[in-house]
Design a binder for these strands. Sequence first.
DNA 1: CTGCATCCGAAATGATACTG
DNA 2: CAGTATCATTTCGGATGCAG
Lengths: 137, 137
Amino acid sequence: MPAKLLHKPSPAYEELDPVVGALVDEVIGRVADKWTMLVLEVLETQGKLRFTRIAEAVPGISQKMLTQTLRQMERDGLVTRTIYPVIPPRVEYELTDMGKSLGEAFCGVWQWAEKNLKRIEKSRAKFDLRAARAIES
Amino acid sequence: MPAKLLHKPSPAYEELDPVVGALVDEVIGRVADKWTMLVLEVLETQGKLRFTRIAEAVPGISQKMLTQTLRQMERDGLVTRTIYPVIPPRVEYELTDMGKSLGEAFCGVWQWAEKNLKRIEKSRAKFDLRAARAIES
DNA sequence: CTGCATCCGAAATGATACTG
DNA sequence: CAGTATCATTTCGGATGCAG
């Protein structure tokens, strides 16, 4: 992989190969999903978990969205789903190697978010203040 | 951010500081947005650009979404917006230092996406095949 | 306990027309 | 050129009921 393509393929790259470019965008769209990121984070830090544990660990997620997110992640090969044929049912989810590697790739983003939280809030306050004054005048 | 929780417990960091935890989630939700990521990437690799150039470089984005995304990024302090009072209007967008640092944080995710594209496609094909067979039987 | 199916309102997005 | 405004459409997400 050339150093030039460390990031998303440039427009030139997409003109050469629009299909691959579109697919990369599609994958980014999938992976850059709020619930996917939060579930990924939980599974990365807490290891193998069952459905209800994940629901508890991801604040605000509904059962429907959790099921949907886990199915997508399973389809994409990010998690394994293990069903224990017992009563009551027991289903456990665990990151695959690919899932773990994605978690590591996102690590920098989490750090960035924590580190820059206050700066973002300040920026927003400033922006909103300027906007308010613009309306007055 | 969802308002209501269907369950009681929370992740470790939220128990320590629920407010900060919620804010980190909010920032992640914002930053882990498809269009934000794509625009960020374009500005990172191509530097200062005007509105139409960005639109051309981000395949599939609508004018509305580009405007919205750029406004949010400006509000969060990720980009600067420079207006040249000429006719026709000329507006240029450029990453701030904070925007650039976010771009670097996302670098690993881009690499991951390119690297694992084929593996994801294979996983999906396999999953869909199993699902199809499950329906038949 | 897990999680699918369905309904429904809310929110996000796209398409189009229009403006300084 | 760089938007804003509006409307149509799609998607999201919560609530509920039910099944294995």
